[in-house]
């Protein structure tokens, strides 16, 4: 018998019964509704509360609202549609933790450096 660990049948839950399928489909439709509602909210806010009419603090709140809604949508896509929520905890953390740490660092460092670059421009004026 060939010893290879790439195509083994224990690898994942490749099969489920009709009853389990019903449960899975119900979850899919629920997440579809959530994603559609969030997108509709984002679009309506975009149309009726545009940046031009809402400067300052109000826009900051709207902006962070968008970012939070985006993160929620991303979470549903990754955890439900990509089934990462159903995978083993090991795999889930191995994918998510390094990625999130790296991106948060990237956002932090680019924002910090961008503000310094801006200071330099202001100084040169």
């Amino acid at each position: 018998m060939l010893v290879r660990d790439d195509i083994v049948e224990y690898s994942l839950d490749t099969h489920h019964s009709d009853e389990q399928g019903k449960v899975v489909r119900k979850k899919i439709w629920k997440v579809t509704a959530i994603l559609s509602i969030i997108t509709t909210i984002e679009v309506l806010v975009g149309i009726y509360l545009p940046k031009g009419d809402n400067p300052g603090l109000q826009w900051d709140l709207i902006k962070w609202g968008y970012i939070i809604l985006t993160a929620v949508k991303a979470g549903y896509i990754v955890l439900v549609f990509m089934h990462l929520g159903d995978e083993r905890k090991n795999l889930r953390y191995m994918i998510l933790v390094p990625y999130i740490i790296f991106i948060l660092y990237l956002i932090f460092i680019l924002r910090t450096e961008a503000l310094y670059v801006n200071d330099a421009w202001e100084f040169l004026k």
């Binding site: 195509i7 083994v8 690898s11 994942l12 083993r88 090991n90 795999l91 191995m94």
Partner: peptide
């Protein structure tokens, strides 16, 4: 398997 997924996945 530590990750319980196939190689391809």
């Amino acid at each position: 398997s530590p990750f319980k997924v196939s190689y391809g996945k």
